Simulated scan of single mutants.
Amino acid sequence: MSKLSEEDIEKRLIRLPEWEYYDNAIHAEFEFENFKDCFSAMSRIAFECEALNHHPEWTNVYNVLKISLNTHDVDGVTLKDFKLAEAIELIVEEEEEE
Score class of each variant (00 low, 15 high):
M1I: 06
S2P: 06
S2E: 12
K3A: 08
S5E: 01
D8T: 02
E10G: 02
L13S: 07
L13I: 07
L16N: 12
P17W: 04
E18A: 14
E20Q: 12
Y21M: 08
Y21P: 11
D23T: 06
I26S: 10
H27P: 03
A28Q: 12
A28P: 14
E29S: 10
F30L: 05
E31V: 12
E31S: 11
E33H: 13
E33P: 02
E33C: 04
F35T: 11
C38A: 13
C38N: 12
F39R: 03
F39H: 04
S40V: 09
A41Y: 01
A41N: 04
M42Q: 08
S43P: 01
S43N: 15
R44S: 12
I45N: 05
A46G: 15
F47E: 10
F47M: 12
E48L: 14
E48N: 08
C49H: 15
A51E: 14
L52R: 07
L52E: 11
H54Y: 08
H55Q: 09
H55I: 02
P56R: 01
W58Y: 10
Y62W: 15
N63W: 01
V64I: 15
L65M: 14
L65D: 12
K66P: 10
S68K: 08
D73I: 03
V74M: 02
V74P: 01
K80M: 04
K80H: 08
F82V: 06
K83G: 09
L84K: 05
A85F: 10
E86I: 04
E89T: 08
E89G: 04
I91A: 08
V92I: 15
E93I: 15
E93V: 13
E94Q: 11
E95G: 00
E97D: 10
E97K: 13
E98Y: 02
